[in-house]
Design a protein around this nucleic acid. Structure first.
Length: 279
RNA sequence: UAAACACCAGCGGA
């Protein structure tokens, strides 16, 4: 039973919902985890009606099943349906509340989300982070900051959200100050800071951070490359591009548009053919 | 083994 559940989970993760369904159909017995995994799987693959169908006929539901269904509606832009279920569910936990709040935040209804946040019986670090991120993204940095200071504990996501918020709103020095104070950083924190510098024409600062990073992913490389491209430093971009391990479609496109914008149509075309050779 | 949060990385789409 649980090995079938694992298979379903793995298929869903890889977007192979039909295969998941096959396993589901052939199982001799199913438990609430099985059903919930399928509901979640259909939701994540945009098949919300199918998810709802299963949800309605599943023999038993727990708070996770309800929340999964709510999350499905939200992911598919149906906030009202989500709220109806939220009101109807027999018990709600902190995840249910936070899911609902995120739904409203994604729709830009910050005031209403905040009401729910204030009303919820208990909050955890994810609830706080969701609010902070939404405020920060929309430039309400004072609100974000207030919550950030108010929250009982902060994790790397809380810090990164604040840094990204300042960086995205052009308050790059405040972002930097916060970044320096971070108790721990991961590659996403570094990337947020690098993108902030690159976007504010502080490409040298971006480069310095990039060189100091303990580890880099494709996003790190592409951010710095794009930064050079945007500042017309196509040779520097090219140099990094050549050194970059595991170039992806984003890297290639950045370079091609870089050459195109610099009226070097020939080079752009050359890169394009190289990309095709590379597969 | 099932539900919620952070990097406006390039181009494009509605």
């Amino acid at each position: 039973l649980s090995s079938c559940n694992v298979m379903i989970t793995n298929y869903v993760k890889r977007g192979r919902i039909e295969d998941a369904r096959k396993v589901f159909d052939e199982m001799p017995e199913r438990d609430v985890v099985t059903w919930t995994a399928m509901v979640s799987g259909y939701s994540q693959n945009g098949k919300i009606e199918e998810a709802r169908k299963l949800f309605d006929i599943m023999p038993e539901r727990n708070v996770i099943s309800w929340t999964a269904m709510i999350s499905g509606f939200i992911q598919n832009g149906k906030i009202e349906e989500a709220h109806v279920l939220f009101d109807r569910m027999p018990e709600r936990n902190v995840v249910s509340w936070t899911t609902m709040i995120v739904g409203y935040l994604q729709m830009g209804k910050l005031e209403y989300a905040r009401e729910l946040f204030d009303k919820m019986p208990e909050r955890n670090v994810v609830s706080w982070n969701a609010m902070i991120t939404a405020y920060a993204r929309r430039g309400k940095l004072e609100d974000a900051c207030w919550l950030f200071e108010e929250m009982p504990e902060r994790n790397v996501i809380s810090w990164t959200s604040m840094v990204a918020g300042y960086a995205q709103n052009g308050r790059i020095d405040e972002a930097c100050e916060l970044f320096d104070k971070m108790p721990e950083r991961n590659v996403i924190s570094w990337n947020a800071m690098i993108a902030g510098y690159a976007q504010n024409s502080r490409i040298e600062d971006a480069r310095r951070l990039f060189d100091d990073m303990p580890e880099r992913n494709a996003s790190s490389w592409n951010s710095i490359i794009a930064g050079y491209v945007q500042n017309g430093r196509i040779e520097d971009a090219q140099e990094l591009f050549d050194r970059m391990p595991g170039r992806n479609i984003v890297s290639w496109t950045a370079m091609i548009t870089g050459y195109a914008q610099n009226a070097q149509g020939e080079d752009a075309l050359q890169i394009f053919s190289k990309m095709q050779e590379d597969g």
